[in-house]
Design a protein around this nucleic acid. Sequence first.
RNA 1: GUGGGUAUAGCGUAGUUGGUUAACGCGUCAGUUUGUGGCACUGAAGACCGUGGGUUCGAAUCCCACUAUCCACCCCA
Length: 445
Amino acid sequence: MSISIQRPKGTQDVTPAEVYKWHTVEQIVKNCAERFGFKEIRIPTFEDTGLFVRSVGDTTDVVQKEMYTVSATGDSTFTLRPEGTAGTIRAAIENGLLNEGFPQKLYYVLSCFRHEKPQAGRLREFHQFGCEMIGAEGPAADADLIALAKSVIDMTGLKNIELNINSIGCPKCRAEYHKALKSYFNQYKDKLCSTCQERLEKNPMRLLDCKSEEDKAIAADAPVILDYLCDDCHAHFDGLQKNLKLMGIDYKVNPRIVRGLDYYTRTVFEFITTDIGAQGTICGGGRYDGLIECLGGKPAPALGFGMGLERLILTMQKQSCEFMEPKTCDIYIAAMGERAIRESIGIISRFRSEGYFVEYDLVGRGLKAQMKYADKIGAKYVMVLGDNELDSGSAKVKNMKTGEQTDISLGEKMLEDFADRYYETLMAEDEMFRNFVEAFGGEND
RNA sequence: GUGGGUAUAGCGUAGUUGGUUAACGCGUCAGUUUGUGGCACUGAAGACCGUGGGUUCGAAUCCCACUAUCCACCCCA
């Protein structure tokens, strides 16, 4: 079969067979964020192009070659958000959230768009859980934000996720560092790979992250940013590490963590896995103290992170983590014969108006096939309805797990009878369903 | 943007000295007598073998191009 229209490159369909995985991480993420006092914010899918140019940075790859920009009528152009921070900060400024007291803690789950060549863990439309904290300057805020990301990862059940942290300083100390880097690498200019020769001019910090073996060897002895931090930045980074230790969060200082978005200052961090191929950064973030002012807000320190939901799910699958199983129907009504089918409609309605999850035959299956179907969809109970039952005013309800059957009256007391027998069992399963996330978190500690 | 791999039913696969109705597993549907699922058995539906050219008496199988997809570089979540 050939379909003429297929999904755009780099996009994904999530079929019913897979959504429950999304429901799982969405619940976990929401749950964690709210336990840390973050409130959800929802922002537009597209923004004025200038917003991203100013915040993400006009020299970054993201802005230079990965944005989906459309020109609407007239002169303004809009861009599908390539990340969530810019829009969130814009919204915070625009809605006066910065005047409501600090810290302002916001989270979101949204899709982002980047025109890249797809590969494992990299899509053109991908989904991000993000948190932004505004107005907190001290390192305790950085540590708390990292703790939030860590608690999400723990709750998913993931293992072997490495936290890397670094400080890239403030604009002042970074300028010094850039000078030092340039003069260091200039000695080896001829030996560097071609892309690195370019990077030397544009963004020397990127050289530290080159994959080429020769460049790596050269970079090994390059000056380290941490030696160039000003006193304030140094103290901040120290403070962060102390807090992480107090929280019992393992980390590794990695001077090569650089981040590709211009707005970062001081703290940057990544949670990395090696389980899903080359794109192993599950979560990345850091501090961006200058961004708010840059976007026209009253100057305020801020920090945040983005977590890639696809990558999270990929890693969870790789590690065989558990997902919240989808809920299945409470009772399947199997009717046979014209009269019973007609009468069953009313019975089904009564169950449904009580809040039960009910299914019944809509495609004309025989009784046996209905039983089979009920089993397939995981129905917990099946009620068989035929002429005999209608005449006698009571029907058998079968427990599909144990196979045992009991009589339930079809009269006024039907719902009462059913509830007497099964309500507690059903509620117990329902409760398990609702508390899944918490239960999960508990197991991991 | 650069490189490499792959392209056969809904899904996963088999199918090389090119040769009649393209095979298997899962799934779907229907049956295995009388009103009850999971197992087993039987049967059915479902593939223009990615697209377009070429070689040949004959191509899923060989050649070319294109497209899609995957992986990697780059970059990032």
